[in-house]
């Protein structure tokens, strides 16, 4: 659906995106992760043709976003962290104004989308009286009205209360499962990305550190938690030297080496006189994966 090849963008002396190459497959919820200034918003800006890339190509549905802008964005809806609206106009008028840049919207579709985002009661109120959550839902409605195949969501949950975050999450899942939309989702909220995205890209200082199915990646990298009553540091060194554990993190989490098994670790610890306090396989959360990826500072792209 989205193909980015060697996209580079520089703002003055700062390299915002560095030769980014990325594919977003059709039908996926694809997460874009990274710190502030990692290049997520610039990447989204380039995809929407709002930011001009210094080098590289970006295509949506096979159309170049700069040379064939109208065709590339024909079936794309986008929302931003702080969506701008004409506060002095009603929600309905705002929707009509934005949608007339894409094409005519049938009344039935209008009602369906407004109902979907839960704004039917307030759609004729002025946007000035909307809460932040309602503005986000209105933004989602304007993105959905022109029958998109691709939704680009830049920090859609930013500033929402827990209930709002929950609502948006479920809406996104529904749009993906029931409407079959491909969703490019950029967020700081790791828990949201974890619950929504199967595929993700991790950016740091404009460079791509990881791209792929992070759960699959983690499944191939089995982790255990090892705690011994005495000599934790020596036990970790010993396990590494014995080739059973590839690496240890500071909190006693170890990644099993290729061919390494939990019983073999237990056996080694007992044979070497350690008293085991804890030994269990663990499933790592996205946060662990993300922080490791960010701090390792090397590309582990699949």
């Amino acid at each position: 659906m989205i193909q980015i090849r060697g996209a580079t963008k520089r703002f003055g002396p700062r390299l915002a995106v560095d030769a980014l190459t990325l594919d977003v497959p059709r039908g996926q919820i694809f997460g874009l992760l990274g710190h502030n200034g990692a290049g997520k918003s610039t990447t989204i800006g380039m995809l929407l043709g709002q930011v001009f890339a210094d080098a590289g190509t970006l295509t949506i549905n096979g159309y170049d976003v700069y040379a064939e802008r109208a065709r590339a964005l024909e079936r794309v809806g986008a929302i931003f962290e702080t969506p701008g609206f004409y506060d002095y106009l009603s929600g309905a008028t705002n929707l009509r104004i934005f949608c007339q840049y894409t094409g005519r919207v049938e009344e039935a579709r209008f009602r369906e989308v407004v109902r979907l985002v839960g704004l039917e009661e307030r759609i004729h109120d002025k946007v000035a009286y909307y809460s932040h959550g309602m503005r986000q839902r209105l933004a989602l409605a304007q993105a959905l009205l022109p029958h998109p195949e691709l939704l680009i969501l830049d920090e859609p949950s930013e500033g929402l209360d827990p209930e709002g975050i929950h609502e948006i999450r479920h809406l996104i899942l529904r749009l993906n499962r029931e409407w079959g939309l491909t969703i490019l989702f950029s967020s700081h909220l790791l828990s949201e990305v974890e619950q929504l995205c199967s595929h993700l890209a991790v950016l740091r200082e404009g460079r791509l550190l990881f791209c792929g199915q992070w759960r699959q990646f983690e499944r191939n990298r089995r982790w255990i938690r090892v705690r011994v009553t005495e000599g934790q540091a020596q036990a970790e060194t010993g396990l590494r030297e014995a080739g059973l554990v590839a690496e240890f993190t500071t909190d006693g989490h170890g990644r099993l080496a290729e061919g390494g098994e939990v019983p073999a670790v237990a056996d080694w610890l007992v044979r070497n006189g350690y008293r085991i306090e804890t030994l269990a396989p663990i499933e790592r959360a996205l946060e662990d994966f993300y922080l490791e990826t960010i701090h390792v500072r090397r590309s582990i792209a699949q």
Partner: peptide
Amino acid sequence: KEVEEGTMRMILSRPVSRLRV
């Protein structure tokens, strides 16, 4: 004003040329 208030970005995420806008 539209750039400042963020509505221009909303418009420019549509399949419309800048010249038309």
